[in-house]
Amino acid sequence: MNSKPQHEIAAEMATVPTAKVLRTAIDRINEIILGKDRSVRLALCCLIARGHLLIEDIPGVGKTTLAQTLAAVLGLDFKRIQFTSDLLPADIIGVSIFDTERNTFRFHRGPIFSSLLLADEINRATPKAQSALLEAMQERQVSAEGVTLPLPELFFVIGTQNPQHQIGTFPLPESQLDRFLMRIGIGYPDHDAERKLLEGVDRRTLLNSVEPLLEESTLRRVQRKAEVIRLSPALLDYIQALLHATRSAPWLVHGLSPRAGLALSHAARAWALLEDRDTVLPEDVQAVAPAVFGHRLQYTEDTATDAGLGLVDRLIRSVPIP
């Protein structure tokens, strides 16, 4: 653990190369989230690609902890909303309250005005509340009672949800799911990681001791850097071939939109940056494709139960790299 004051570390990181920054950040997160390197990388990749993240897994595998760790390590302004069935849009966005002194309405900003918003159990809220959040995610601005307020330039939403369709949940419609750049799972920890978890300190206390590694400007620099990663025509061909395959595969309910293709290219660039490369390779596309495409695709009924492979893996295997 580093004992230097927070601002010092952050200032130091502002000058070091991106790759090293990212490596350090990943290492730090991995100290808290044990044995989940891939999920951590994907989550970070998602943030670098300026996308929102949906974590779907059973309770207790560390969805919330992952979000919190990310926020802490990246030094982001973090807020959390627990979604419940009686959550109202105003609880997310904010509310105008009559100011008796000035005799006007004053807008009280809701938790959405933050850099990293954790929307816990997003599928327990009513569609109305969900759509308020998702609209803000898409537009990166908030409209409330005739006023339009921009959200911070760095604005991420990490939504979590339980996979099972339970009574009283409102599964996100496909159009809303599309607004999340990625959906990842976390899964059970492996044997060693679990043992370490059981032995070690409670993760939450560990979390409190974490000091931010980056400041906002550094993250923005990283994001800008990701945008200029080279995507050669050969890879564009590949991405198009993948999209085309989803549109013609009979085992899928419907094909992917161009937006999904765009999402894939952004995510692949961010992944290439994480891998410390200046060019996207087919492997990068394949690495992020399950997370980017997973929630946008749907097996036709019954096939899901028969398939041994994951849906996107199956898709990838059916498309030759041009």
């Binding site: 390779l281 087919p282 492997e283 394949q286 990838i316 295997r317 059916s318 498309v319 030759p320 790299i321």
Partner: peptide, 9 residues
């Protein structure tokens, strides 16, 4: 090489 296999893989 499988048709879907990336060069580094």
């Amino acid at each position: 090489r499988a048709s879907y296999e990336g060069p580094w893989d």
